[in-house]
């Protein structure tokens, strides 16, 4: 699209100033994090000392590295499972024949997005707890005698995170699928491709940009998840966010919390930034734009 460039720009300054102010505030907040990451921690005080690089070196300790590794592992698994579970729903959402089915699907699919992380996390505590929904169900069915420990495990955390991530993934995938020309799928069938082959050779390749960007978005998103590992992990599953919270609001080691925040920010931005050119190229290839 070309932008219209009029000689006069009505409202330009009046509309620009609030945005500049907001951007300034946000950059100042991030700048503070950056600044604190170079300061010396003074135990027992909220004030910080002089400049140092020591906080960055501290990340290298095995205990922090293992948290980092856990965070990445959980995020990768969450992104992959979210993709697998979301694709069929997104496909159904776009291709269901009846209007009411599509409406029902979209409402069921995106409602969890708006109930907030505390409500969703609490719901999973009820589902996964030792007296929770799953254990009661299994016990009543006579499949188990002692409750399974699902809470406070990586499994439980991942199960909850996948459910949180699905609405966003479904929206991204559904957008991608809705841009696939229906007649391309029909053409493939007309040329002799059975339904699964049509999916594999036409639908999936044409939605690949959505698949990749969706997976990376969920990966970055999960990297910064906090309440789920905090409550469902219960201190036994630690992700980077929990470490920031511990360091920042329990130990009041602001400098180290700042370093960890920056690290999370870099991983998130890095993973999203890295794929952008790749996605662009792929989108050009399948000619979405």
């Amino acid at each position: 699209m070309k932008h219209r460039v009029p000689r006069r720009r009505p409202f330009f300054l009046a509309f620009l100033l609030p945005s500049l102010l907001a951007a300034g505030l946000f950059l100042a907040a991030l700048g503070d994090v950056l600044q604190y990451s170079f300061r010396t921690f003074i135990p027992g005080s909220l004030d910080v000392g002089g400049f140092t690089l020591e906080n960055f070196l501290r990340i290298g300790r095995p205990i922090y590295l293992s948290v980092l590794l856990d965070t990445v592992t959980i995020s990768v698994l969450t992104a992959l499972f979210t993709l697998l579970l979301s694709y069929p729903v997104a496909y159904a959402l776009v291709r269901a024949r009846r209007d009411w089915v599509r409406t029902l699907l979209i409402i069921l699919a995106i409602t969890p997005l708006f109930t907030g992380e505390i409500v969703r996390t609490y719901a999973w505590i009820l589902v996964l707890g030792s007296n929770g929904f799953v254990n009661s169900l299994l016990k009543d069915a006579g499949l188990i005698t002692a409750p399974l420990s699902l809470l406070y495990t990586r499994f439980g955390v991942t199960v909850a995170l996948v459910q949180f991530s699905m609405p966003v993934m479904i929206i991204l995938l559904a957008t991608a699928i809705s841009h696939v020309d229906r007649n391309c799928e029909r053409a493939a069938a007309n040329l002799g491709a059975p339904p699964l082959m049509v999916f594999w050779r036409v639908t999936l390749p044409l939605t690949m940009p959505g698949v990749i960007s969706g997976t990376i978005v969920i990966f970055a998103w999960t990297m910064s998840a906090f309440s789920t590992p905090q409550l469902i992990g219960g201190g036994k599953v630690l992700m980077i966010s929990n470490l920031v919270y511990l360091q920042g609001l329990s130990t009041f080691n602001f400098p180290f919390a700042a370093v960890l925040s920056l690290l999370a920010l870099l991983v998130a931005m890095g993973s999203l930034g890295l794929i952008r050119p790749a996605i662009r190229r792929l989108e050009r290839r399948v000619a979405l734009h």
């Binding site: 007649n183 391309c184 029909r186 053409a187 493939a188 036409v202 390749p205 399948v286 000619a287």
Partner: peptide, 17 residues
Amino acid sequence: YLRDTGMVFQSYALFPH
């Protein structure tokens, strides 16, 4: 896919990839 008809679509529906 088992009918052996050859369709040419109005929009051509060529596979863009």
